[in-house]
Write a protein that binds this DNA or RNA. Sequence first.
DNA 1: TATAGTGTTATCGG
DNA 2: ACCGATAACACTAT
Length: 266
Amino acid sequence: MPELPEVESARAVIERVGLNRRIVDVDDSDPYETRPHVPGQIREALLGRTLTQAHRRGKSMWVDTSDDGPQLGIHLGMSGKIVIADPEGVEIDGGDYWERGRKPGDYRFTRFGLTFEDGGSLLLIDPRRLGRVRLDPPVEKLGPDAQFIRPDAFRALLHSSSAPVKARLMDQDRIAGIGNLLADQILWAARISPSRSADELDPDEVNRLLRATRAAIRDAIAGGGVHTLRVVAYRKKAARCPRDNAPMVQGTVGGRTTWWCSKEQA
DNA sequence: TATAGTGTTATCGG
DNA sequence: ACCGATAACACTAT
């Protein structure tokens, strides 16, 4: 369930096997997944074109299309996944991250699809339907990508807000790509309480946070998803911090369930 | 059966 | 207008 690392994996799937194949059919019949478009609108815009390049910023993806066509924007929401199937419908690439319970070839929750000339297809599978497909998505509102943000920009986004630092890290308009699990991992690794005011962090803490951000993203991409991050396994009742054995505690910060070490992140 | 959920956004109050 | 907190969205798995 996608944060920046999973979206990057999905982008890579499109780059590997989704490009330069003529689109001969489009299933955009789910009116919720494709809002505010109406069914048929995306189909009309894409028929006959090819995908030429896949981009990502934070958790948002968009794909360029041939012949000056529109960009195809894809957001995976809470449960979306991109899958490429061969002409027989056999899943040949779904990215390299874990996905809660789903088995390859389970297409029950397909919400959007492209069929290519050779019969292969690109599918958006999204049980919860909080993902979104749209033409020419507005991505300029997003903050800089969390994987590549520069130190001065990182410092600046924390500097001017009394909001809890976790809420600030998850604000996609200021830094794009960090979700609930990445945020918990970053704050745990940096030994900073999620509810600390962002503007009260000292320079050393800001440095620790930036280093932890880069490490968490790198580790999650290498490990196969945010669920592989160290602290994620300890986000549960009666768990103890794997560093100091103090109890892990739970609360709500920035509107999301949050777990932290009661000793090092006090 | 009731609840929680790895995301986004409209809405409300300050 | 800005900022932050909250509810709503749709649906499955536990």
